[in-house]
Protein backbone atom coordinates (compact mmCIF):
# COMPACT_ATOMS: atom_id res chain seq x y z
CA UNK A 1 0.00 0.00 0.00
CA UNK A 2 1.29 3.42 -0.87
CA UNK A 3 0.38 6.43 1.24
CA UNK A 4 1.30 9.96 0.21
CA UNK A 5 1.03 12.79 2.73
CA UNK A 6 0.91 16.43 1.65
CA UNK A 7 2.68 18.78 4.00
CA UNK A 8 3.07 22.49 3.66
CA UNK A 9 5.60 24.61 5.49
CA UNK A 10 3.97 27.73 6.93
CA UNK A 11 5.03 30.69 9.08
CA UNK A 12 4.76 29.72 12.76
CA UNK A 13 1.26 30.96 13.72
CA UNK A 14 2.51 31.61 17.26
CA UNK A 15 5.37 33.81 16.13
CA UNK A 16 4.13 35.49 12.99
CA UNK A 17 4.54 39.27 12.77
CA UNK A 18 3.40 41.52 9.97
CA UNK A 19 5.28 44.43 8.58
CA UNK A 20 2.74 47.24 9.08
CA UNK A 21 4.02 49.17 6.05
CA UNK A 22 3.94 46.46 3.38
CA UNK A 23 1.37 44.09 4.90
CA UNK A 24 3.82 41.23 4.32
CA UNK A 25 4.93 38.69 6.86
CA UNK A 26 8.19 39.91 8.40
CA UNK A 27 11.22 38.07 7.15
CA UNK A 28 12.89 35.79 9.65
CA UNK A 29 9.57 34.45 10.93
CA UNK A 30 10.21 30.84 11.99
CA UNK A 31 8.71 28.24 9.63
CA UNK A 32 6.87 25.17 10.84
CA UNK A 33 4.84 22.32 9.39
CA UNK A 34 1.17 23.18 8.94
CA UNK A 35 -0.52 21.76 12.02
CA UNK A 36 -3.20 19.64 10.34
CA UNK A 37 -0.59 18.16 8.03
CA UNK A 38 1.26 16.74 11.02
CA UNK A 39 -1.95 15.02 12.05
CA UNK A 40 -2.23 13.62 8.52
CA UNK A 41 1.38 12.43 8.82
CA UNK A 42 0.73 10.80 12.17
CA UNK A 43 -2.32 8.99 10.80
CA UNK A 44 -0.22 7.65 7.94
CA UNK A 45 2.49 6.42 10.30
CA UNK A 46 -0.08 4.68 12.44
CA UNK A 47 -1.46 2.87 9.38
CA UNK A 48 2.10 1.96 8.41
CA UNK A 49 2.80 0.57 11.86
CA UNK A 50 -0.12 -1.84 11.52
CA UNK A 51 0.95 -3.33 8.19
CA UNK A 52 4.36 -4.18 6.86
CA UNK A 53 3.77 -3.34 3.20
CA UNK A 54 3.28 0.42 3.42
CA UNK A 55 5.42 2.86 1.51
CA UNK A 56 5.03 6.32 2.98
CA UNK A 57 5.99 9.40 0.96
CA UNK A 58 5.90 13.00 2.17
CA UNK A 59 5.36 15.63 -0.51
CA UNK A 60 5.65 19.37 -0.29
CA UNK A 61 5.56 22.29 -2.67
CA UNK A 62 7.62 25.32 -1.75
CA UNK A 63 10.47 25.90 0.68
CA UNK A 64 9.99 22.98 3.05
CA UNK A 65 13.26 21.20 3.74
CA UNK A 66 12.88 21.37 7.53
CA UNK A 67 9.31 20.15 7.35
CA UNK A 68 10.19 17.27 5.06
CA UNK A 69 13.11 16.34 7.32
CA UNK A 70 10.70 16.30 10.19
CA UNK A 71 8.37 13.96 8.30
CA UNK A 72 11.27 11.64 7.49
CA UNK A 73 12.27 11.68 11.15
CA UNK A 74 8.69 10.93 12.19
CA UNK A 75 8.62 7.88 9.92
CA UNK A 76 8.12 8.67 6.21
CA UNK A 77 10.25 6.48 3.91
CA UNK A 78 11.13 9.21 1.47
CA UNK A 79 10.28 12.77 0.55
CA UNK A 80 9.63 14.75 -2.60
CA UNK A 81 10.21 18.50 -2.64
CA UNK A 82 8.67 20.49 -5.46
CA UNK A 83 10.80 23.61 -5.61
CA UNK A 84 10.30 26.07 -8.38
CA UNK A 85 10.26 29.86 -8.33
CA UNK A 86 7.50 30.00 -10.96
CA UNK A 87 5.19 27.96 -8.73
CA UNK A 88 5.95 29.99 -5.62
CA UNK A 89 3.66 32.81 -6.72
CA UNK A 90 0.91 30.39 -7.72
CA UNK A 91 -2.66 30.34 -6.48
CA UNK A 92 -4.28 27.27 -4.97
CA UNK A 93 -5.20 25.95 -8.42
CA UNK A 94 -1.58 26.12 -9.56
CA UNK A 95 -0.57 24.37 -6.35
CA UNK A 96 -3.15 21.65 -6.96
CA UNK A 97 -2.08 21.22 -10.60
CA UNK A 98 1.57 20.82 -9.66
CA UNK A 99 0.75 18.36 -6.90
CA UNK A 100 -1.62 16.47 -9.23
CA UNK A 101 1.10 16.13 -11.87
CA UNK A 102 3.42 14.59 -9.30
CA UNK A 103 0.72 12.36 -7.84
CA UNK A 104 -0.20 11.01 -11.28
CA UNK A 105 3.37 9.87 -11.70
CA UNK A 106 3.68 8.60 -8.10
CA UNK A 107 0.32 6.88 -7.81
CA UNK A 108 -1.17 6.21 -4.36
CA UNK A 109 -3.74 4.18 -2.50
CA UNK A 110 -4.29 6.86 0.08
CA UNK A 111 -3.55 10.55 -0.09
CA UNK A 112 -3.65 12.32 3.24
CA UNK A 113 -3.75 16.11 3.41
CA UNK A 114 -4.61 18.67 6.06
CA UNK A 115 -8.08 20.16 6.05
CA UNK A 116 -6.59 23.61 5.52
CA UNK A 117 -3.42 25.57 6.07
CA UNK A 118 -2.80 28.27 8.63
CA UNK A 119 -1.38 30.66 6.02
CA UNK A 120 -3.22 30.41 2.69
CA UNK A 121 -6.11 28.73 4.44
CA UNK A 122 -8.35 28.20 1.41
CA UNK A 123 -9.05 24.58 2.31
CA UNK A 124 -9.34 23.84 -1.39
CA UNK A 125 -6.19 21.93 -2.31
CA UNK A 126 -7.56 18.52 -1.24
CA UNK A 127 -10.88 18.92 -3.10
CA UNK A 128 -9.14 20.36 -6.19
CA UNK A 129 -6.86 17.34 -6.29
CA UNK A 130 -9.89 15.07 -6.05
CA UNK A 131 -11.31 16.77 -9.13
CA UNK A 132 -8.05 16.76 -11.07
CA UNK A 133 -7.28 13.11 -10.25
CA UNK A 134 -10.87 11.88 -10.31
CA UNK A 135 -10.77 10.24 -6.89
CA UNK A 136 -13.13 10.59 -3.90
CA UNK A 137 -12.34 13.00 -1.09
CA UNK A 138 -13.44 12.93 2.54
CA UNK A 139 -13.08 16.16 4.48
CA UNK A 140 -12.84 16.92 8.22
CA UNK A 141 -11.49 13.49 9.13
CA UNK A 142 -11.15 12.93 12.90
CA UNK A 143 -10.72 9.14 13.04
CA UNK A 144 -9.31 6.63 10.60
CA UNK A 145 -8.71 2.93 10.32
CA UNK A 146 -8.14 0.49 7.54
CA UNK A 147 -10.17 -2.74 7.32
CA UNK A 148 -9.46 -5.24 4.56
CA UNK A 149 -8.31 -2.61 2.15
CA UNK A 150 -11.18 -0.22 2.91
CA UNK A 151 -10.61 3.05 4.75
CA UNK A 152 -13.11 3.70 7.49
CA UNK A 153 -13.10 7.36 8.41
CA UNK A 154 -15.06 9.48 10.82
CA UNK A 155 -15.96 12.96 9.69
CA UNK A 156 -16.66 15.78 12.03
CA UNK A 157 -20.05 17.33 11.28
CA UNK A 158 -22.03 19.87 13.18
CA UNK A 159 -22.96 18.39 16.57
CA UNK A 160 -21.59 14.96 15.79
CA UNK A 161 -19.70 12.56 13.62
CA UNK A 162 -20.37 10.58 10.51
CA UNK A 163 -18.77 7.27 9.58
CA UNK A 164 -17.76 6.76 5.97
CA UNK A 165 -16.12 3.92 4.13
CA UNK A 166 -14.05 4.65 1.10
CA UNK A 167 -12.15 2.34 -1.24
CA UNK A 168 -8.72 3.29 -2.54
CA UNK A 169 -7.47 5.40 -4.15
CA UNK A 170 -8.92 8.15 -1.98
CA UNK A 171 -8.09 11.53 -0.49
CA UNK A 172 -8.67 12.26 3.18
CA UNK A 173 -8.32 15.72 4.76
CA UNK A 174 -7.33 15.66 8.41
CA UNK A 175 -8.40 17.74 11.39
CA UNK A 176 -6.45 17.92 14.64
CA UNK A 177 -8.86 15.65 16.54
CA UNK A 178 -7.50 12.76 14.51
CA UNK A 179 -4.54 11.98 16.74
CA UNK A 180 -1.60 13.40 18.69
CA UNK A 181 1.38 13.78 16.33
CA UNK A 182 4.55 12.23 17.72
CA UNK A 183 7.83 14.05 18.21
CA UNK A 184 10.46 12.93 15.80
CA UNK A 185 12.70 10.95 18.17
CA UNK A 186 16.46 11.25 17.92
CA UNK A 187 16.45 7.71 16.52
CA UNK A 188 14.08 8.99 13.86
CA UNK A 189 16.30 11.99 13.12
CA UNK A 190 19.25 9.60 12.79
CA UNK A 191 17.36 7.25 10.51
CA UNK A 192 16.34 10.23 8.37
CA UNK A 193 20.02 10.80 7.53
CA UNK A 194 19.81 7.78 5.25
CA UNK A 195 16.42 8.51 3.65
CA UNK A 196 16.19 10.16 0.22
CA UNK A 197 14.60 13.50 -0.66
CA UNK A 198 13.97 14.07 -4.37
CA UNK A 199 13.64 17.58 -5.80
CA UNK A 200 11.33 18.33 -8.71
CA UNK A 201 10.78 21.46 -10.79
CA UNK A 202 7.72 22.48 -12.80
CA UNK A 203 9.53 21.26 -15.92
CA UNK A 204 10.18 17.85 -14.31
CA UNK A 205 6.45 17.59 -13.71
CA UNK A 206 5.67 18.54 -17.30
CA UNK A 207 3.77 21.66 -16.23
CA UNK A 208 3.30 24.21 -19.01
CA UNK A 209 3.76 27.93 -18.42
CA UNK A 210 0.01 28.42 -18.75
CA UNK A 211 -0.70 25.78 -16.12
CA UNK A 212 1.75 27.45 -13.75
CA UNK A 213 0.14 30.85 -14.18
CA UNK A 214 -1.90 32.13 -11.24
CA UNK A 215 -5.22 33.74 -12.03
CA UNK A 216 -5.86 35.00 -8.55
CA UNK A 217 -3.66 37.85 -7.37
CA UNK A 218 -2.62 37.84 -3.76
CA UNK A 219 -3.14 41.24 -2.18
CA UNK A 220 -1.75 42.81 0.98
CA UNK A 221 -2.69 41.52 4.40
CA UNK A 222 -4.14 43.83 7.01
CA UNK A 223 -5.84 43.65 10.34
CA UNK A 224 -9.44 44.71 10.58
CA UNK A 225 -10.20 47.58 12.89
CA UNK A 226 -11.95 46.44 16.02
CA UNK A 227 -15.57 47.36 15.35
CA UNK A 228 -17.62 45.66 18.07
CA UNK A 229 -18.57 48.27 20.62
CA UNK A 230 -18.88 47.52 24.29
CA UNK A 231 -22.04 48.25 26.18
CA UNK A 232 -21.61 50.32 29.29
CA UNK A 233 -24.45 50.56 31.79
CA UNK A 234 -24.33 53.93 33.47
CA UNK A 235 -26.40 55.48 36.19
CA UNK A 236 -28.24 52.27 37.11
CA UNK A 237 -28.34 50.59 40.50
CA UNK A 238 -26.65 47.23 40.96
CA UNK A 239 -29.81 45.12 40.91
CA UNK A 240 -31.14 46.48 37.68
CA UNK A 241 -27.65 46.34 36.16
CA UNK A 242 -27.52 42.61 36.98
CA UNK A 243 -30.99 42.08 35.52
CA UNK A 244 -30.05 43.87 32.33
CA UNK A 245 -26.82 41.93 31.98
CA UNK A 246 -28.53 38.59 32.52
CA UNK A 247 -31.23 39.47 29.99
CA UNK A 248 -28.56 40.53 27.51
CA UNK A 249 -26.64 37.27 27.89
CA UNK A 250 -29.77 35.14 27.75
CA UNK A 251 -30.93 36.86 24.63
CA UNK A 252 -27.68 35.82 22.95
CA UNK A 253 -27.90 32.31 24.39
CA UNK A 254 -24.62 32.83 26.19
CA UNK A 255 -25.98 31.55 29.49
Amino acid sequence: MKIVVLVKQVPDPNAVRFDPRTGDIQSGTPQVANEYDLHAMEAAIQLKERRDDVELVAVSLGQARETLNRCLAMGADRAVAIEDATLAAGDSTVTARALAALLRAEGFDLLLAGQETSDGGTGTVGPQLAALLDVPVVSNVVALEERDGVFVAQREIEDGRQVLEVTPPAILCALSGLNEPRYPSLKGIMAARRKPTETKTAADLGLSAAEAQARVTWGPLFQEEETAEGIILRDVDADSAVDQLVAFLQERKLI
Partner: peptide, 14 residues
Protein backbone atom coordinates in the same frame (compact mmCIF):
# COMPACT_ATOMS: atom_id res chain seq x y z
CA UNK B 1 23.32 22.21 10.15
CA UNK B 2 19.82 21.01 9.39
CA UNK B 3 20.41 18.06 11.72
CA UNK B 4 21.45 20.32 14.58
CA UNK B 5 18.32 22.40 14.00
CA UNK B 6 16.17 19.29 14.07
CA UNK B 7 17.65 18.15 17.36
CA UNK B 8 17.21 21.62 18.87
CA UNK B 9 13.61 21.89 17.71
CA UNK B 10 12.71 18.44 18.92
CA UNK B 11 14.14 19.01 22.39
CA UNK B 12 12.55 22.48 22.53
CA UNK B 13 9.15 21.08 21.62
CA UNK B 14 9.48 18.33 24.18
Amino acid sequence: TSEQIQVRDMVREF
